[in-house]
Amino acid sequence: MRQLLNTLFVLSEDAYLSVNGENVVISREQKEVARFPLHTLEGILCFSYAGASPALMSACVQRGVDIAFFSPRGQFLARTVGEEHGNVLLRQTQNRVSDDPYQSCRYARGFILGKVYNARWVLERATRDHPQRVPVKTLKTAAAQMAQSLPLIASCEDPAQLLGLEGEAAKLYFGVFDHLVLQQQSDFRFTSRSRRPPLDNINALLSFAYTLLTRDCTAALESAGLDPYIGFMHRPRPGRRSLALDLMEELRAVYADRFVLSCVNRKIITAKHLQKQESGAVLLTDDGRRAFLGAWQSKKQEQITHPFLKEKIPWGLVPYVQALLLARTLRGDLEAYPPFFWK
């Protein structure tokens, strides 16, 4: 099992990363401000314009430390990729499945089944935990309608119909999502999902959380020997990490959405942490990113019992476990891919 170590977040726009021996060194204005042992890190997320030295990128590749680069505003730019060590036979199978509509649909419905199941239980959990603060009847009605679609998804063999069922469930879920915002409701009102760019505070947080989750799913798939760009539900497209987006679907509601709601309801993030740009886009401020990423790192350390393995693992390892289960299914070790079912 992969060990969950620390993720280093570099947020200063003028920070430059280099390597000295077995340490990553952070400098500003050519002066060292911090250093961290590489062996304690599993990943580095750099939100700096200055970037990193080639020597550091090489050291990270050799040690299996994932390093990803973002703009200071959180837009993903690139990540280091070393020599591929994936099983070529596994990737050949992945390609064949992706090219076969029937087999591809078989895997896609597992991802969507997990997504709808988990989104439904996010609503059910809210009625259980906050019966005096949420419209219980409204949420239960939406959850019941989503539950009715689960058998249809599980038996669906038509890709277009499958996407239609997923779209209907997503409409039900986001139609009541605003009721899950229990604090700061005037500042974090949710009316509809907007992206590229996010146009309000809650969508800005959702988009940033999805970016972080996609990065984790990408690293998980690569560690399992799979190609994150060859998907089953999301069709392959140049520059799009389609399989990472597939894997993320079942984790969106239970991992990213609940995390965003927690940040808002616990006031870890407030309106002062977000800023509206001239273009209309809403983005996190520097302080907002620090608060958000600190909470994200803490979230990854929380222990849960994995529903398939029946073992306790940190939340941060869930994408890696699901990637390994997907690889085992493609190899024929499992009859069907077991989605992550949370309750």
Rank of each mutant, 00 (worst) to 15 (best):
L182A: 12
L247Q: 04
P238F: 06
H234A: 08
K300H: 08
H130I: 15
D216W: 03
V254W: 02
V88E: 06
V19F: 01
T329G: 03
L77A: 05
T127H: 06
L89W: 11
D100N: 14
V134K: 00
K267L: 15
Q322T: 04
L245V: 10
K140L: 11
V116F: 02
D227V: 09
P131R: 05
E22A: 14
Q92R: 08
N201C: 15
I230K: 03
L56Y: 01
P338Y: 00
E168H: 00
G316F: 04
P135Y: 07
S155P: 02
Q94Y: 12
F341D: 00
T40V: 15
S207Q: 09
W315T: 09
N203Y: 12
R120T: 14
Q148L: 11
G51V: 01
S104W: 11
D216Q: 09
P339W: 02
R258H: 05
E29W: 10
R289E: 06
R35L: 06
Q322F: 03
L261E: 00
S71I: 13
Q94D: 12
V282F: 04
V181D: 03
V181I: 14
D246Y: 02
P197F: 03
R196W: 12
I67N: 02
I153M: 00
S98G: 14
E335G: 10
I153D: 00
L4C: 09
G225A: 11
S207I: 14
N201D: 15
A169C: 08
N87T: 10
V25E: 01
K137H: 02
V264I: 15
L150S: 05
S298Y: 11
I269D: 04
R128V: 12
V264Y: 08
K312P: 09
G82H: 11
P159T: 08
A204M: 12
A119C: 15
V65L: 13
I313N: 09
D286I: 13
V19T: 03
L226F: 11
R290W: 08
D99C: 13
F177S: 04
G114I: 01
Y255V: 11
L163Y: 03
G167W: 09
L182I: 15
L77S: 07
S18G: 09
S98H: 06
G316E: 02
A119P: 15
D14M: 01
H130S: 14
A34D: 05
L89E: 12
P135H: 09
I67A: 04
A34E: 04
C60N: 03
